[in-house]
Design a binder for these strands. Sequence first.
DNA 1: AATGAATGAGTCTTCATTCAT
DNA 2: AATGAATGAAGACTCATTCAT
Lengths: 236, 236, 236, 236
Amino acid sequence: MSYRSQLILAFGQTNMARRPQKNPRKIASQKRSRATVDALLEATARILIKDGYDRASTNKIAAVAGVSIGSLYQYFPSKEALVAAVAERHTQELLQVGRDTLLEAAAKPIAVAAREIVRAGVDAHRVDPRLHRVLAEEIPHTGHLAGINSVERHSFEHFRAYLGAHRDEIDVGDLDLAAFILVTALEALTHSLVLRRPDFLTDDKVEAFIDEVTRLVLRYLAPAPRRRASQRRAKR
Amino acid sequence: MSYRSQLILAFGQTNMARRPQKNPRKIASQKRSRATVDALLEATARILIKDGYDRASTNKIAAVAGVSIGSLYQYFPSKEALVAAVAERHTQELLQVGRDTLLEAAAKPIAVAAREIVRAGVDAHRVDPRLHRVLAEEIPHTGHLAGINSVERHSFEHFRAYLGAHRDEIDVGDLDLAAFILVTALEALTHSLVLRRPDFLTDDKVEAFIDEVTRLVLRYLAPAPRRRASQRRAKR
Amino acid sequence: MSYRSQLILAFGQTNMARRPQKNPRKIASQKRSRATVDALLEATARILIKDGYDRASTNKIAAVAGVSIGSLYQYFPSKEALVAAVAERHTQELLQVGRDTLLEAAAKPIAVAAREIVRAGVDAHRVDPRLHRVLAEEIPHTGHLAGINSVERHSFEHFRAYLGAHRDEIDVGDLDLAAFILVTALEALTHSLVLRRPDFLTDDKVEAFIDEVTRLVLRYLAPAPRRRASQRRAKR
Amino acid sequence: MSYRSQLILAFGQTNMARRPQKNPRKIASQKRSRATVDALLEATARILIKDGYDRASTNKIAAVAGVSIGSLYQYFPSKEALVAAVAERHTQELLQVGRDTLLEAAAKPIAVAAREIVRAGVDAHRVDPRLHRVLAEEIPHTGHLAGINSVERHSFEHFRAYLGAHRDEIDVGDLDLAAFILVTALEALTHSLVLRRPDFLTDDKVEAFIDEVTRLVLRYLAPAPRRRASQRRAKR
DNA sequence: AATGAATGAGTCTTCATTCAT
DNA sequence: AATGAATGAAGACTCATTCAT
């Protein structure tokens, strides 16, 4: 079963709103289902954070969710699927945080866009850092859990497109390579900021961090006429 | 936990240090011990790579190492300790690859040192990438396994020291922040290069990658008189 | 347990018999009920064949029958009862195939009747061999499922009666024993023919099989005057 | 893992006796293993009889065997394998009972051999009838349990060989067919005798049964010159 | 009467660890 | 020291059955 169909199964039909609700019972039970699924996702996230992936047992998750183990398996065919759903939900939340910023940034010049993007990255990682850590660092990437790194892939595509569109403002040889470098560095930096340097999370320190990372990005992309000029001068 | 303390823990404060080895049998058995420990570490690494952390059982490890499960527990008090020892060993190997480079680089100007350091980072990650991946992405960070990220901490210290020593060549406000940014970015970039973009691993592509990352580093650190100049002009 | 008592059990002594069906809605719903029950029996048989008894879950059966699990339990109080009903239905079908033959055979001399009975046995086992196999070989014989071997009991009674009625044509000491032997052998032979020797199921091979089994029966029952005669002659 | 290797694993090396026992510990532990395996097989058989296949859980089996569940899985990789081993053991016991009889019978004329074979069949089925019933009637024949009906296959081969060797004494067209018929009937008759007609199990009744089945066999196989003669006469 | 969400006892199985030999 | 048999807590998962709607 694909992850997508899994989700559909888990969340029930998403077109609820479209069809006229002739059967109130159906709606009631759908609400019930939805509540169960939400409780399970919440419980999973909480336990993942508290105990790590290995010690997060489905029985414990069900208990914390206040749901029977049978219900858990009614909605998620395996522990993996459950964790994958949590990951997906988290991913969606992350993306949501940055989405508008990225869309708006697309039209702005790099000097402006860069700072906004960096800030969006930091904000996104602050959504649920501890969950993010578990998801990023402790999950075996096999089976259902294989395709979880979608955020980076998405970001990569966005970045490459952006760089392509702003080619005249920047100095980049290989678009692919540049996008890879920027996305990887940005992701790692915001990730590590939040997870490894909580001491950097005061408001002013965060601003300094954003300044610096923005500088990293802009200087990397900047065309370097003046530099050459100075070098020429230096050679004289 | 360091490898040394690990071993001490494993051997339970043995008499190694206390008495001079007058007894050749002791030497023989120490050799044997060492062989057993090596076999166990090797087997663990192999199985970690092949099956992932979750499916790496101590029984299987012992079997692959050609050692009884009892002996495994004679040398390592728990699975965690065993994996931690593997991680430590891997870390040492990584560091060894980069050590000389870093030491030599310490005396060179940044423009030269940067490239060498980047190259060293790439080389280090090519040591045993699949083990590196498992260690980095699948290991629960609790208990004995909590303190595994020592590489980054080491590197961080080195970098900060280096930046401090070359302060006149560069334009950096907060040394701490700059070191954090560079180390984090470098680690992530070399890691992702090796693990996520095997298509970038041909010789010429690697060179291009090193060029780019070097540029990232150098431009980030470069004093930017001309920029300020232009900005000043802009402000007028 | 007979199918009738089964149904009564299933319907919980419904009012079927009590009041005449004046109400057309009742008829409609009875039809619907009957359809539901049939769908369930069909689904059970299919799944029993496909998955075996162990893996035939009531939920799956209900799903395949296109009926809610709740409805399944409205008609059958347990999985056992459902399987018992399937067994009973199968049994009735088997018996139906042989019934006329047996009734007609009752009036015929053994030499004729035997062949017809054997053929009827083969035909009966060809009704739904795979269901027959599951029912015969995989069903736990406890609880509701205890009394499933009714076919053999029926056949046994028929046979004994027949042998009793034709006593003058045959040479049998203990009627009970002879009936037991014949019924057991016949059942096993036709069963095994269909289930274990599909290679014997071509038309001509089946005829040969019927010839042989008929011979087995007739010779077993035959009075042996000529034999004795020859023996007497031999003794002179 | 094949069933054979399974057994070897379960019973340890069978060549124990051949090698000089240098290591007394090994032998001790082998005795221990053997005892564990035996206890497990015994417990399985008992529970199979008492509760049937479905309700025989591995935990219960281990408990009854006085062995930890872990040990059970050390020797048998699955419930199926355990049951298969019980079946195999039972089969071997059955075969052992009849083996000598069959070997000796091979040299005797049919009239003598038949009775001995029938008696051997009855004796064999009296070994552990209730276990035999469960094994024969309740076990899903899939996976490891697929190849359990080996007794009948063995018997079939023996019979065909015997019939072939004694061709001059008997009147048989198709050896294959005749062997199939005899083996199937014999197996079913002795099986049913023991399991369905305990009332036939008094000494004299068993003798009567043996007489009758012997008659069934002998008459089936007997050349029938006189019959044909009488038939010829009848046709005139 | 029908639905299907919910239940939870119970299943098979794994595996880190202990300990008698 | 080494061995490997034994342990048993704990885990993922199934499924017959109930019951609110």
